[in-house]
């Protein structure tokens, strides 16, 4: 069997930064109602940078793995840089995602954008 990209399976089995922050500066939930995937992203911001991050959620392996990977990617990054991120930043980090599952991959990124939009 040709499985999901190893990076997806690895993050699905060992999610990074999963849980909750106390008094987060950004706290946002995004969902795909059609498949029931839910991702919550919380950020602690200091000096315009992501000082700390957590995600939580439920759903398919791809959405949850993408959320886990995204938290690793954004930690320490300035918000102004994150605001400029297109889909391809996450897609290439995941290494080739099946086109039928783009919505799953992009769910955490949509959550992040929603959280940053007011800042």
């Amino acid at each position: 069997m040709s499985p999901y990209e190893e990076v997806i399976l690895e993050h699905w089995r060992n999610p990074r930064n999963k849980g909750r922050l106390e008094a987060p500066d950004v706290d946002v939930v995004e969902a795909n109602p059609l498949c029931g995937d839910v991702v919550r992203v919380q950020l602690k911001v200091r000096d315009g940078r992501v000082e700390d991050v957590r995600f939580d959620g439920r759903g398919c392996a791809i959405s949850q793995a993408a959320a886990s990977l995204l938290t690793e990617m954004i930690k320490g990054k300035p918000l102004c840089e994150l605001k400029g991120w297109g889909d391809e930043v996450l897609l290439s980090a995941l290494g080739g995602v099946i086109k039928t599952r783009l919505n799953c991959v992009l769910l955490p990124l949509r959550a992040l954008r929603k959280g940053l939009s007011s800042r």
């Binding site: 069997m1 999901y4 498949c35 392996a61 791809i62 039928t100 599952r101 799953c104």
Partner: peptide, 22 residues
């Protein structure tokens, strides 16, 4: 504990077409 979309995508990689969703 496995989302049906993951099941369908993995089966698809073996050429097996099933439906997953509501």
């Amino acid at each position: 504990g496995v989302h049906p979309h993951d099941v369908a995508t993995l089966l698809d990689q073996e050429g097996i077409a099933i439906r997953a969703g509501h």
